[in-house]
Simulated scan of single mutants.
Amino acid sequence: MKIAILGTGCPKCKQTAEVVRLAVEQTGIEATIHKVEDIQEIVKFKVMMTPAVAVDGQVRISGKVPTVEEVKALLAHGGEA
């Protein structure tokens, strides 16, 4: 599973990255996490608001900092909301 954290590096984006890291750690799911901070790359995901979380190329959370539980639920369903 590939998880992308989309955001320009603001505090909420950093908080989202930490939440996703914790959720992956707690679930034990094998996933690669990378941050996408380049605005041109973020636009390719058609995201209107950051922070956002994309799982395997599909945006699943946008415009808010998710909770660890929200991310864990997302990961448990293979990235499907």
Rank of each mutant, 00 (worst) to 15 (best):
P51A: 12
K2P: 05
V65A: 07
A76C: 07
V55N: 09
V68T: 11
V65S: 01
G57D: 11
V53I: 03
A81L: 13
K2N: 14
A4M: 13
G78L: 01
L22G: 03
A81C: 11
T27M: 07
T32H: 11
I29S: 04
A17R: 03
R60I: 05
E25C: 07
V71S: 06
P66S: 02
V59A: 11
A76L: 12
E18I: 15
K44L: 11
K44G: 03
K12E: 07
K2Q: 12
E30K: 08
A76K: 06
G63V: 12
T8M: 06
I5H: 00
R21V: 01
G57N: 12
V20C: 00
K44F: 10
H77L: 13
A54N: 09
T8C: 05
A31V: 06
G9P: 13
G79H: 04
S62F: 13
R21L: 08
G9Q: 14
D38H: 14
E70F: 02
C10E: 07
K14R: 15
A4N: 01
I29Q: 02
A54Y: 00
M48F: 09
E69W: 08
H77P: 10
G63N: 06
C10A: 12
I61G: 00
Q40G: 14
V65K: 02
G79Q: 11
E30W: 09
D56V: 13
K12T: 07
V47K: 10
L6D: 09
A81V: 14
M1E: 11
K46D: 14
Q58P: 05
G7Y: 01
P51K: 10
G57V: 09
G78W: 00
Q58D: 14
M48V: 15
V19P: 08
Q58Y: 11
I33F: 06
I61W: 00
C10P: 05
K14A: 02
G57Y: 02
G28L: 00
G7F: 04
Q40K: 15
V20M: 01
F45I: 05
G79K: 04
E41W: 10
C13V: 12
A23Q: 00
E18T: 15
V24T: 05
T27V: 08
T16V: 06
P11S: 04
V20S: 05
V65N: 02
A54V: 14
V20W: 03
K2M: 15
F45W: 11
G57L: 01
E25P: 02
E41M: 02
A31Y: 02
T32G: 14
M48W: 10
R21M: 10
V24E: 00
H34K: 13
E37T: 15
V59M: 10
K72T: 01
I61Q: 05
S62K: 12
E25A: 13
I42C: 13
H34N: 10
V47D: 00
T50P: 06
K64I: 05
E41R: 09
A73E: 06
I42V: 15
R60A: 13
T27L: 04
E80H: 14
D56M: 08
V53E: 07
Q58S: 12
G28C: 09
I5K: 01
V68Q: 05
